[in-house]
Amino acid sequence: MIITAQNISYSVGQKPILHNLSFAMHPGEVTVVLGPNGAGKSTLLRILSGEQAPSSGTILLNDKSIQTFSLTQLARCRAVLSQQYMLNLPFCCEEIVMMGRYPHFNNHPAAIDRDIVQQCMQEMQVAQFTGRLYQTLSGGEQQRVQMARVLAQLREANAGDVTGKLLLLDEPTASLDCLHQQACLQKARDLAQHGYTVAVILHDLNLAAQFADKIILLKNGQLVKEGSMREVLQPDCIADAYEMEVEVWQHPDYNFPVLVPAEHKVRSILKTSNKNNIHEYNSRSFVKG
């Protein structure tokens, strides 16, 4: 599913949250949305999901306006993982994951729905929590259960049919340990490779470097830069958005860069540097050990 944002603006009262954003997301790509706190990332995700209508502009899903889809139609092809969930009623983990299947059946889940729930719980490594109350899990474990629910929502009953799926993740790694951060984003990548369109909000620039195909960099609701991962993860772009100096390192054994905050640097090369020698530094490889 190709998602096109055309001149999206959104404001609450007099306060503009998003200003005139246009971009496209394609199946097979992981698009990472970056930006400082309050840049409007979560709002953008809500607008992309169709839950919130923009003040002006349109979102197109495969050339059709998102407004023309019913809530149920959307629920079958688009899933959202939110930042946090406040659950006060005691539900078991598998009941939570089964909720992802609700748009797909009327009253009682079919055998295939139960299979999908089990499968998604295994994929997120939460199968061992079957029968456990959701509230008794730690924050990171809860997040993985929610991720399993989101996976279950998009899983097609007949395997292989993944045309037109949109996966939106709002800081999926926030409460996860480093191993599960990798697993979670790797899952998002795999799904993109199967034809999903994936958008992820991240704060960790290095995770973005590792998993993004495309990056949308926001600041104060405005687009700072949109482009491929290497185009956006440049010291000048990051300095524009975050007002923070970084260095971009490339190790020859890896096909993604590493970003390091420059202010901790001991030898002060950077202080005298201009843009040119930052680039020179970028291309320099560093040697292990």
Binding site: R46, E51, A75, R76, Y85, I96, M99, P103
Partner: peptide, 20 residues
Amino acid sequence: AKSLNVFALGEQEAAYLGVK
């Protein structure tokens, strides 16, 4: 009942799962 279950996740999440 199904909508009420989803509602426990939150109003936005219920909407994401197709609940009016």
